[in-house]
Simulated assay, not measured.
Amino acid sequence: MSWSQYSDELHEAATRRVLEEGLTLRAAATAVGASRSTISRWVRLWRAEHGFATEQRPPRHGADWQKHEAVRLVLEEGLTFAGAARKTGVTPPTVRKWTHEARPAPKRGDSSQRAQAEAMRLMAEEGLGPRQVARQLGLSVSVVAAWIRHGNVR
């Protein structure tokens, strides 16, 4: 089957990345230099040719999925904002904004002591460094480094 200006190999590679790797249509389109609607059509045609009338999994597109996945990649997998942005097809500033919105707001009072205790636990039990601890707790690296310098976290 001819795929107009795109080679069969390019078409198959883009379709495979969307279906098997879960790449967003936008990210696949950017990767191969085609439009999102072209990639969508290729995926639809592949599904029709292979007997998949409906999707076998929930759709992995749209802002809600991207937001949830980007925040999960940063907070749980430890990816950078740029890394999560590449995987979800959005910009790094957007991932940063979503991540900061998803973190609970700091509370007055003993929150500093709780955060220091959690930082100590993360460093001792999970072997995380100051950067990873700061990212997990939604703090700057300089705050965690100051706690270490002053002996509040070991």
Score class of each variant (00 low, 15 high):
residue 3 W to G: 04
residue 3 W to S: 10
residue 4 S to K: 05
residue 4 S to W: 00
residue 5 Q to C: 05
residue 6 Y to I: 07
residue 10 L to E: 11
residue 12 E to L: 05
residue 13 A to L: 03
residue 13 A to G: 00
residue 13 A to T: 07
residue 15 T to K: 09
residue 16 R to Y: 08
residue 17 R to F: 01
residue 18 V to Q: 01
residue 19 L to P: 02
residue 19 L to H: 01
residue 19 L to K: 07
residue 20 E to L: 10
residue 21 E to I: 00
residue 24 T to V: 06
residue 25 L to H: 09
residue 27 A to F: 05
residue 28 A to D: 10
residue 28 A to E: 12
residue 28 A to M: 09
residue 29 A to Q: 10
residue 29 A to G: 15
residue 31 A to E: 06
residue 32 V to K: 07
residue 34 A to R: 03
residue 34 A to K: 06
residue 34 A to Q: 12
residue 35 S to F: 11
residue 36 R to D: 04
residue 38 T to V: 15
residue 38 T to E: 10
residue 38 T to N: 05
residue 39 I to Y: 11
residue 40 S to P: 05
residue 42 W to G: 06
residue 42 W to C: 05
residue 45 L to W: 04
residue 49 E to L: 12
residue 52 F to S: 02
residue 52 F to M: 11
residue 53 A to W: 04
residue 54 T to F: 12
residue 54 T to I: 10
residue 54 T to G: 08
residue 56 Q to I: 09
residue 57 R to N: 12
residue 58 P to H: 00
residue 58 P to M: 01
residue 61 H to W: 03
residue 62 G to R: 03
residue 64 D to F: 01
residue 65 W to V: 00
residue 65 W to G: 04
residue 67 K to S: 04
residue 70 A to Q: 08
residue 70 A to M: 07
residue 71 V to I: 08
residue 73 L to K: 02
residue 73 L to W: 00
residue 74 V to C: 02
residue 75 L to M: 08
residue 75 L to P: 02
residue 77 E to L: 02
residue 77 E to A: 08
residue 78 G to A: 08
residue 78 G to M: 07
residue 81 F to K: 00
residue 82 A to M: 01
residue 82 A to V: 07
residue 82 A to Q: 12
residue 84 A to M: 06
residue 87 K to V: 03
residue 87 K to L: 14
residue 87 K to G: 00
residue 88 T to N: 14
residue 88 T to G: 11
residue 89 G to V: 09
residue 90 V to F: 05
residue 90 V to T: 14
residue 91 T to R: 15
residue 91 T to F: 14
residue 91 T to I: 01
residue 91 T to A: 15
residue 92 P to N: 13
residue 95 V to L: 12
residue 96 R to E: 15
residue 96 R to L: 15
residue 97 K to D: 10
residue 98 W to A: 14
residue 98 W to K: 13
residue 99 T to C: 09
residue 99 T to S: 11
residue 99 T to G: 05
residue 100 H to R: 10
residue 100 H to T: 11
residue 101 E to K: 15
residue 101 E to V: 12
residue 104 P to V: 14
residue 105 A to T: 13
residue 105 A to L: 15
residue 105 A to E: 13
residue 105 A to I: 13
residue 108 R to N: 08
residue 109 G to E: 13
residue 110 D to H: 15
residue 111 S to P: 03
residue 111 S to R: 13
residue 112 S to R: 13
residue 116 Q to A: 04
residue 120 M to N: 10
residue 120 M to T: 14
residue 121 R to N: 03
residue 122 L to C: 07
residue 122 L to E: 02
residue 125 E to F: 01
residue 125 E to T: 09
residue 126 E to N: 02
residue 127 G to V: 06
residue 129 G to H: 10
residue 129 G to E: 15
residue 130 P to I: 14
residue 131 R to I: 08
residue 133 V to M: 09
residue 137 L to S: 10
residue 138 G to H: 06
residue 138 G to W: 02
residue 138 G to R: 06
residue 138 G to A: 11
residue 143 V to C: 08
residue 145 A to T: 04
residue 147 W to E: 11
residue 151 G to R: 03
residue 153 V to H: 02
residue 153 V to S: 04
residue 153 V to K: 05
residue 154 R to A: 09
residue 154 R to I: 09
